[in-house]
Design a protein around this nucleic acid. Sequence first.
DNA 1: CAGTGGTCTAGACCACATG
DNA 2: ATGTGGTCTAGACCACTGG
Lengths: 258, 258
Amino acid sequence: MNTSLRSQPARSGDVSGFDGLVFRPRSDTPIWQQIYDYILALIDSGCLRAGSQLPGEIHLAEKLGVTRITLRRALQQLQQEGHLTSRKGVGVFVRSLPSALVVRDGSRFAESLRADGKAVGTQTLFLEREPADPEMAAELRLQAGAPAIRLRRVRSADGQPIYISTKVFPADLLPDFEVVYSRRQSVTDVFVAHGIQKYRRVETRISGGFATAEEAQLLQLTPGTPVFRTSSINADASGNRIEWARGCWLLTSVDFIF
Amino acid sequence: MNTSLRSQPARSGDVSGFDGLVFRPRSDTPIWQQIYDYILALIDSGCLRAGSQLPGEIHLAEKLGVTRITLRRALQQLQQEGHLTSRKGVGVFVRSLPSALVVRDGSRFAESLRADGKAVGTQTLFLEREPADPEMAAELRLQAGAPAIRLRRVRSADGQPIYISTKVFPADLLPDFEVVYSRRQSVTDVFVAHGIQKYRRVETRISGGFATAEEAQLLQLTPGTPVFRTSSINADASGNRIEWARGCWLLTSVDFIF
DNA sequence: CAGTGGTCTAGACCACATG
DNA sequence: ATGTGGTCTAGACCACTGG
């Protein structure tokens, strides 16, 4: 009986609930699904807060009166839907699912979230210059090998990462990119500083896929979790393509509206 | 040894491959993933055609030298990505994944596919009149309880279902719906017959989710497979809302382009 | 009826992260 | 060194489907 209070609030297993449960094997719904429903209810009701850690699988399985495999079936489903994350050797954690509304203009991402009252965060992974590879060149209508700028960021809402952004720009049109960007981490600022006040969306593509290991780590997901993939092109008033953006979004936390 | 030829080509286990395989447990990639890669390669290379049935899990697991659970881990991943379907009490089958391109105007679905050289199919599940519930009424700007027409269809490409469509129309504007629709199963025809030559897309929404049991059955998927959910509104030239369409698409088989 | 996939048990070893 | 999640084994019973 080590369920009761701990002195360190961040310790593992520091969670209410999970006591005196009975799951009947002969019911019409599988046990793993009953456990799924149960844990999901704990999350939705606020008993399990975002960031908190679940008890270890072995203890939890014992407490719920099922095998570890059966418990894992439930946890797996919850991970696929983005409610939980697991880190090998560490534990299973609760993720919140901000439901973000995104308007047509993908670059207005931050505004859409702020309108919902979310605290928007930006983590810049890298910002570098390099020659355009054939794909970048084709998307931006450049010659292969032309100088390009690559920017990769993770955007988060209320502390939960929800979006990986990878953007490519034609370096010739934006000589002062790094200087301006470093001030406020704003691409819009960079455009304005180079005289580009207005730009338009040429094309947006939305497809589906599954998180790679790297994407999963950045978004605090389990690899293989389903995601949205977006790809969009922006052009300035003269029709010059000035940005090719690709995004990777948690499937269950976004609505795209056009 | 019952692997060799059968007289009936549609029989279970009637599949080449799956012989003399060795999967090393101490490799850097898990066994289930090696099996996943192996089966996926068989599908991609055409050794496993769409619609063909895999050997039973027990036999297949034995042939691959792994436990049924390990095999099922690989099959599960393939099902989630839409490459396989399983029917309880029947077997596991190969699904092909037509990659359909869909343009902004969702009603042009069939045209997009035909342009790819696919054979487009339509299965009408129901077509009925009923009073609009609050949600329908709100989307179509009707009074609650106003007469509405509901149409539910499954669209397929090359015999594989890829899209469930549920549409709602204001019945008052389309008195001859059933008569016209029955001729060619075309909603566009119905609009034209009622003097609506042109209509415009008011809004499109794209979100993600997981297939319900009913959706899974209609799309020949496993319940819980990730899907796109679309919701769109069309209005006629005067701005009257004439159609509210909802769609459920296999995640891995569509690209939305705007 | 026989065969299928869906579920579940009771163990075990490993790689990994943390203290 | 300990505890974690990730993987794997060798069985078992069930509900469902088809002939």
